[in-house]
Design a binder for these strands. Structure first.
Length: 263
DNA sequence: ATGGTAGCGCTGCTA
């Protein structure tokens, strides 16, 4: 199974690019974040034309997550278990069963500034994600959690850690919350494939030429359950897809990441 | 140098 994750920063603005990318990358499952779209506007037919079933969870203006699958898609659930969709989770998690794998597309809150109300919300949201996983699955099940975690797991996952003093995405509480997912039984698939590779990022700020100057962060992750970790055989961040489709069409600020897993 | 860009949507927020 080839499973991908991509924060598209508006699905409306990026639909053509996504269609192009899906056609050549040929993922079996795609998890999208920041669709910034309502469920009514979601282009179900466009994905069906490419051979993908799909599910979406969004309110329109902010956030919004989706799953595309060409290996079946059922038992879709928007939001956390036992909570009204859109309530606490803010259209940031969608879960579905695809080809025998329980897949979650997550968009973890940004956190804005360390110590802020939004930062505390981010930490609580990550704990809620762990509790949701623990309540609905086990690490011995086939589980994949994909998305924009807005946390760089280690110092080597940012372009220059000295530039991040006191910043979000690298603080110890955020990293500890991410590690709690690993303690439960998830494995960072990209890091499993590239245990020694540094300076491989998934996000670059639009400003100041950061992409072309190599100033990025690895914050988009594919986490696989212990049951699947042994089958992970390949992973790639497609930097080409971060280059857009010409001067009139800016790219997303994130590149897609995909992982190939032998099930 | 406290900047810079993008999306949504029309004012300023979010990232």
């Amino acid at each position: 199974m080839r499973i991908a994750t991509w924060n598209v920063n508006s699905l409306k603005a990026r639909l053509a690019k996504l269609e192009e990318w899906v056609s050549y990358a040929e993922p079996d499952v795609v998890c999208l974040q920041e669709t910034k779209m309502s469920d009514e506007a979601f282009p179900t037919a466009a994905f069906a034309a490419l051979g993908y079933e799909s599910a979406h969870h969004g309110n329109g203006r902010w956030n919004g997550v989706a799953i595309l699958s060409r290996v079946g898609l059922d038992q879709a659930r928007a939001g956390f278990l036992g909570e009204p969709p859109g309530a606490i989770e803010q259209c940031r998690i969608l879960t579905a069963s695809c080809g025998g794998v329980r897949v979650a597309s997550v968009y973890v809150p940004n956190g804005r500034a360390v110590g802020s109300e939004q930062y505390d919300f981010k930490l609580a949201w990550l704990r809620r994600l762990r509790d949701d996983l623990a309540a609905t699955t086990t690490p011995d099940d086939a589980v994949v959690v994909c998305g924009d975690f807005n946390v760089a797991p280690e110092d080597r996952d940012v372009w220059d850690i000295s530039q991040f003093l006191g910043a979000t995405h690298v603080s110890e509480p955020e990293r500890a919350a991410l590690r709690e997912l690993e303690v439960w039984g998830l494995v960072d698939a990209f890091r499993a494939v590239y245990p020694d590779a540094d300076r491989l990022y998934t996000w670059w700020d639009y400003r100041a030429g950061d992409f072309h100057n190599g100033r990025g962060m690895r914050i988009d992750l594919v986490l696989v359950s212990r049951a699947l970790a042994g089958g992970v055989r390949y992973a790639l961040v497609d930097r080409e897809a971060r280059k857009g489709m010409g001067s009139d069409k800016p790219p997303s600020d994130h590149a897609p990441l995909f992982v190939d897993i032998d099930l």
